[in-house]
Amino acid sequence: MTVKTEAALRPRPALPAGHIAFWGGAALLCLALVAGFRVLDNEYAWFAGYFILQYVLLATAWNILGGYAGYVNFGAAGFLAVGAYTTVALRKAFGLDLLPCIAAAACIGGLLGLGTGWLALRLKGVYFAIATLSLAVLLHTIVVNWSFVGGSRGAYVLRPASIPPFVSYGEYLFVVMLVLAVIGVGIARGIEGSRLGMGLAALRDDERAAEAAGVPTLRLKLVATTLSGALMAVAGAPLSHYTGYLNPEAAFGLAFSVNAIAMPLIGGAGTWFGPVIGAVLLASLQQAATVTISSAANLMIVGVVLVIFAAAAPRGIVGLIRGGRHR
């Protein structure tokens, strides 16, 4: 079976783009972005771009569990930090390069997600959300007390000045995150049109009715938590290389958890495109605010925009564009 015919079942398809069109478009977009940034020739642009892309991936990952399955994860920062610290630990222990560290982060994040999924079997709604928050605090405490990765003082990561054929290390990181973000969005989009997506939507709307309709809710939830956890950890894996220095305060920053929720909601939770729009908009806004005003102002922006959208446009920007009658 193909995703395409299955998507045809939906009266309102998730944006009218076929498989080939999506991947082709994504590839073109990537090339255009890299080419454009090279023309700009500004080292800061790569870092700003990385900042936004990392949120695209984080928001997309959160959306797989929160938007598709309806399980709110308050502990996104915990998953992201697990990815970041996987890199720090593996680099220090075995001197591994970034790419294998990212793969390892995906595995560990996935395992942690699977563990969270075990909680989701027993806990519904807000209890699950609180459990994920606790999990993040627990992980934070462990990292603070783990002196191998620097404990509360943090750890410095020496990174190469550049990796050929990239002009700078900033460009390299940007491209890595770009590819990861496209893969993440592609996975989310694939889920949305598939049998899995339909089953998750059913269990999000009514878990008991879904069970009665033959949906193996238990297995689907585990798939969603695992995928979501793996992708969040991947979003964090290059963080230490990006900042050059990683401490628990930065890795477990509340801004990650809040943005992971706010971005999909503002863009449109439950659609693959929503988190992308939300992340690009909010992250750009925050980048701009950090540069021009203050870091307090950027959180204020997130707060105000979040309240307005939650109240006035619960289906997010994607919902506004579609103008659907249904909620």
């Binding site: 079942l9 939906r10 009266p11 089953g199 939507a201 059913a202 709307d205 009514d206 009715a209 879904a210």
Partner: peptide, 13 residues
């Protein structure tokens, strides 16, 4: 019912 799905999709699940 599954409120975010259409009537047809409800039965497709």
């Amino acid at each position: 019912p599954f409120n975010s799905l259409s009537v047809l999709e409800n039965v497709t699940v």
